[in-house]
Nucleic acid binder design. Structure first.
Lengths: 332, 332
DNA sequence: TTGAAAGCGATACCAT
DNA sequence: ATGGTATCGCTTTCAA
């Protein structure tokens, strides 16, 4: 920057102002910009951050980067935040709260302006870290009862219950559920709990739950899972899956077995992924706006940031409830 | 850090050394660590970067975050680099070279240790910026003739030609190709070119190319595309798709039309995505190890970094050719 | 093994 | 509208 200043015959401060786009006369600005371009000068963000005490980072933690719903959420966050000059610092927790804690700690070193987390469960240390950092936090994809700060999500359990009711209304009575094997995926586990609760509420007998495969649940888990389900409860007439991915895998397995969907067995998914409406038969599912969750979360963080900027009284914590809806298609 | 130093009764330097895990006596280390934990102290990475002149960032640019092959590549990079304390700075170029330039410029501000780009084409300004930065660069998913630095990729054109030959060997003679509408996806365009070249080489008549949909090409593009193809050339007996996603969409459309795959028409994909082997019929495709590309790219960057560390003579630029192979399945 | 001082490259703040 | 100076929090370097 000194170089630029010298060559342009101005002070460093003026160069800094040109870069920030603040009160500088047209003539000076052009003169300085010319030198910047000639030299290919790129300002050092670390120095800027140190000096101003604020970075342009937003820490974002998702359970998996290769799961289409979370990458859609990341796109939403990106869309909301990038125009404001913010840079996402992305972390993949692999569905582990410990990994999340590690990543939060590491990201906090970069003094992010705010943090977006997935889910409503975190280690105590994570919460403490975030508390101490004193920056806006948003939790996504869930509705925790004890939020850290703001929330953008929905009740996974309620969404699953809605699907059970849908299947019940369609006349299905012997409904199974295909879940992941571990409790690491809290949202998946919540869906399973919602299924069980509604099955009980409707008096549909004992829940039929198959737990199979590590998160993220993918297409390839669906086949073995529905096989196991039909083995355990051969008279099952409908299957709910924790995700459209496994629903698709389950339907493909039905094709292989010569079972018609929904004729012989109905299959429902969750998430309204692209495959659910491209698949033949199209898959009945719960629609959740993954991109919208990210977008909304981004907007809430921006609002919180703006609030601090203006020194307004810290509003009370907000929770944005995201709508979900059962989309009836061919498969159930 | 001063706080910690004071409370622990040592100097700032000692605290710094504890954090870096360098020559500090066991007793001092424990004493300092205790204070750090008590205070919940988190070192400021920006200050560290400024002082040491080196960050822990790696800039990574992909055309799309919500495309499973690129997110697999990102996972590979992450797996290779994270254990070395490096932090990915992820950018989504939306298949635009201009956007890529913008992101490179913005990321260079953080003084990344190295850069991973997708594809072999970039604006002149991007190349100049990277040149000036003087840090290791890797280009992925392609084999450019004029690489910036190192390369981890394969020839998309050769891969497409291999698939044409496979279909030819299987007896198909009237082979079409489903591509995206724009040239923005260079790798997709290369595949289309490879298809045309091989069709010509084998004397299979005029190429039959349908260009439809913006990148990233998804499942929903496949149905309309194969419809258009069959409208233009009703006697087509095999279709190659630029991606497994569109191949899947095309197959689903065939089901809807009552066409059997591959009986009435064969369909081949590209990428060996999960859907290609879960789908019924399973999809013949070109297998490319997306995760491996990322992993390998990460390792090459680490090697380049280590080289500079030791001050070794800058090796000549390396290009790692990634294998691809045609996987024959049920659909073609 | 530990400490003191200098400085990394920008911005905030106050002057002019 | 522009410039001078202190300073952000750490690491490097050198000394003890």
């Amino acid at each position: 920057m000194s170089d630029v200043a010298e060559r342009a015959g101005v002070s460093k401060m003026t160069v800094s102002r040109v870069l920030a786009g603040r009160n500088v006369s047209q003539a000076t600005r052009e003169k300085v910009q010319k030198v910047i371009d000639e030299l290919g000068y790129v300002a050092d963000a670390a120095a800027g951050a140190l000096s101003s005490g604020r970075s342009e980072f937003v820490a974002v933690l998702v359970p998996s980067l290769s799961s289409s719903n979370f990458s859609d959420t990341v796109r939403g966050l990106n869309a909301a935040l990038t125009p404001h000059g913010l840079q996402l610092l992305l972390g993949d927790t692999a569905y582990s709260l410990e990994q999340e804690e590690l990543l939060v700690r590491s990201m906090l070193r970069h003094q992010p302006r705010c943090v977006a987390l997935t889910g409503g469960r975190h280690t105590d240390a994570t919460r403490a870290l975030l508390q101490r950092a004193g920056i806006p936090v948003v939790e996504m994809w869930d509705l925790p009862s004890d939020p850290i700060d703001t929330v953008v999500g929905f009740s996974n359990s309620a969404a699953a219950r809605a699907m059970v009711r849908h299947l019940h209304e369609r006349g299905y009575r012997r409904i199974g559920f295909i879940a992941g094997a571990s409790e690491l995926d809290r949202r998946g586990a919540d869906r399973a709990r919602g299924y069980v609760a509604e099955i009980r509420a409707l008096g549909l007998g004992e829940p039929r739950v198959i737990r199979l495969g590590e998160s993220p649940i993918t297409m390839s888990h669906g086949g073995p899972a529905i096989s196991a389900l039909l083995e355990a409860w051969p008279d099952t007439d409908a299957v709910m899956c924790v995700s459209d991915m496994s629903a698709f895998g389950a339907i493909m397995e039905c094709h292989r077995r010569g079972l018609s969907v929904p004729g012989d067995i109905a299959v429902a998914g969750f998430g309204n992924f692209e495959v659910s409406w491209c698949c033949q038969p199209s898959i009945t599912t719960v629609s959740v706006d993954a991109y919208g969750i990210g977008r909304r979360a981004g907007e809430m963080l921006l609002a919180a940031l703006a609030e601090r900027e203006t020194g307004a009284a810290p509003q009370r914590r907000k929770a944005a409830k995201i709508d979900f809806s059962v989309i009836a298609r061919d498969s159930a």
